[in-house]
Amino acid sequence: MYAISLTSIPPRFECLGPVLTGLLAQRPAPARVILCLPRRYARFPGPVTPPPLPDGVDLLWHDTDLGPATKALPAALHLAGQMPRLIYCDDDWIMGPGWAAALLGAAQPHEATTGQGYSVTRLHRQPTAPTPQHTEIAQGFAGVCVDPAWLSARDMDPPLAAWPVDDIWLSGCLAHQGIFVRPVPAARQAMRLAHHDMHGLQNCVFDGCDRHDANTACLSLLTERYGLWPRLGGGG
């Protein structure tokens, strides 16, 4: 038994239909598909009017805009102790047949699985992956399968330095608990891009930081807070 969760932003609401349909069509069928939305957005002013949702998709409101981590943390808190597995993903990819099955089938105790991951060595940080089959950073766009209890602590809301870079922040929250990440390339093969737009955070400047600066700030915060992934050669 498992659930799927994601979040979205107002400019993408009208494009959600095929994304949600792809999630509902996964086999084994998810017990729940949850769309998590903040009651107010940091980047988009004004009241939030949710999009119409197909049968089988539940809306979960969250009082705070956690940025892209809204796709994982509210649902994890809601489902901890009730659901053994949660897959969180992005709202701009359509997941084809076999995506969820691949992530679920590769899951081992005390491991997260992802359709695509990468090593922190790419960011000049000391890796902690225990084997070549593991990595440090789980990329949410390709889906990440976890026990929701792992992401249910109240202190996991991303601070400002981590707000735009949820992959690093959430992966750090897992790594702090000794949860390793196993990439599952078969899941990535079942995906296709749903649409193109200019609203993703990848190329945005947030609070004066571009993506590289945000990655560095989040990694430094994780090093300071948990001792995770210090710079290669030493330092924070």
Score class of each variant (00 low, 15 high):
H195E: 09
C36P: 02
A175D: 00
A153S: 15
G140P: 05
P18K: 07
H78C: 13
D65P: 02
L201N: 11
A29L: 11
L6K: 01
W99M: 02
L20Y: 09
L232S: 10
G67E: 01
R122M: 15
G208P: 04
G17T: 07
V165A: 09
P54R: 03
P10E: 13
A161L: 08
P185F: 13
I4M: 05
P127I: 07
A42M: 09
M83S: 13
G105N: 09
Y118Q: 12
S220C: 13
T121N: 06
A75I: 11
M1Q: 06
G22F: 03
L66K: 13
P47Q: 09
D91Y: 14
P148E: 04
L221A: 02
H196L: 15
D197Q: 01
I4F: 01
T70R: 02
D207V: 14
R85M: 15
D91A: 11
T114D: 01
A112N: 02
A106N: 01
L79R: 10
D155H: 15
P164M: 05
L73S: 15
P38Y: 01
L35Y: 05
R231N: 09
A214V: 04
T21G: 06
S220F: 01
D166S: 14
E14M: 11
D167T: 13
A80T: 14
Q108M: 03
V205M: 05
P47T: 14
V19C: 10
L104S: 06
A3W: 01
G178T: 04
Q26A: 08
G235K: 04
L104V: 09
E136S: 13
H176G: 00
A175T: 07
R188V: 02
Q133R: 14
P45C: 14
D90N: 08
R85K: 15
A112G: 04
H212L: 10
C36T: 13
A76W: 06
E224H: 11
A162D: 00
L20K: 07
Q116F: 12
A80D: 06
D58T: 14
T7V: 10
A214F: 05
Q126G: 05
G67W: 01
Q177P: 00
I4P: 00
S8V: 03
E111V: 05
V19S: 05
